[in-house]
Amino acid sequence: MLAVQLVVNPSAPDTKLSPSTVRALFNMRLLQWPDGTPVRVYVLPDDDTLHRQFCKRYLGVFPHQLRYSWNRRVYSGIGQSPHQVENVEEMRRRIADTPGAIGYLPEDLIDDSVRAIEME
């Protein structure tokens, strides 16, 4: 199985992200990059293998924990959920096309349209 890699739109200002920043981004509570660009978070469905792998490796949470936190924000009106994409090709295309975008891809799908970003 290919390793999952955090990726951003090439215009993103950071080159490295701390684990707590990554958690804050995917929990939808850190909503802008240091330069003020709004963050756009992209995820695969909860039961997707790559999503589960990403949750475990980068966030240290289970998909159902993230879902609880997104649902609570969305259905009580105090936040929004990430954009869910259907597959990794759509994920790559959306991240490439959207300034401020962040998501994840299998390593072999990373090309020049997106940028891999390391977690400290």
Partner: peptide, 18 residues
């Protein structure tokens, strides 16, 4: 049955209703 709409015009503002 419920339907909700939210709009975030900037990272610090959110308008929402259900």
């Amino acid at each position: 049955a419920g339907v909700n709409l939210s709009l975030r015009p900037s990272p610090s503002w959110l308008f929402s209703a259900q």
